[in-house]
């Protein structure tokens, strides 16, 4: 997309801020067990990156997750959480008993790492899509820049 949106300050802020915000969101998700952060914070950071894009570019945003797509994505995030929980139940454990996950590793601690990473990814997708859906519902059918 070649044409310029907004002023040059907004343009530069968008190009510098958004990639680093999204990258930091992924970092917080993956490093959630060693440092402060986790699924919720990572999802909120990713949503903040998308919201910056929306605020600068308006309707023609690159990260188009508008309307029903965001709601469906939120449902998929919650579904991933529930899926991991029920997989462990299918293989003979309790709900979210990660030691029963059907992976090829047999160390229970490592199984816990994979299970928690899986549900954190679900939480991240759910939180990100929910925040974007709320923003869409608040700004539906109006141009943010009219006076």
């Amino acid at each position: 997309m070649k044409h310029r949106f907004g002023s040059i300050v907004l343009d530069t802020a968008f190009r510098v801020l958004v990639p680093f915000t999204l990258l930091y969101g992924f970092y917080v998700l993956v490093h959630g067990e060693y440092s402060p952060g986790g699924g919720f914070q990572a999802g909120a950071l990713l949503a903040a990156g998308v919201l910056i894009a929306r605020l600068v570019q308006g309707e023609e945003a690159v990260y188009d997750l508008s309307g029903n797509k965001a709601v469906v994505l939120a449902g998929l995030g919650a579904g991933l959480y529930a899926l991991i929980g029920f997989i462990t139940m299918v293989f003979g454990g309790k709900f979210l008993e990660y030691g029963r996950l059907p992976l090829s590793v047999h160390d229970p601690a490592e199984l816990h790492v994979y299970g928690i990473l899986g549900i954190e990814i679900g939480v991240t997708i759910g939180v990100m899509a929910t925040i974007i859906a709320i923003f869409d519902a608040l700004t539906r059918g109006e141009d943010l820049y009219d006076d």
């Binding site: 402060p36 919720f40 914070q41 949503a47 903040a48 919201l51 605020l55 709320i134 923003f135």
Partner: peptide, 14 residues
């Protein structure tokens, strides 16, 4: 503190 920082930004936008 991290959660509050992120949610503070998002809620201001809302």
């Amino acid at each position: 503190a991290f959660t509050e920082a992120v949610i503070g930004v998002v809620s201001t936008v809302f």
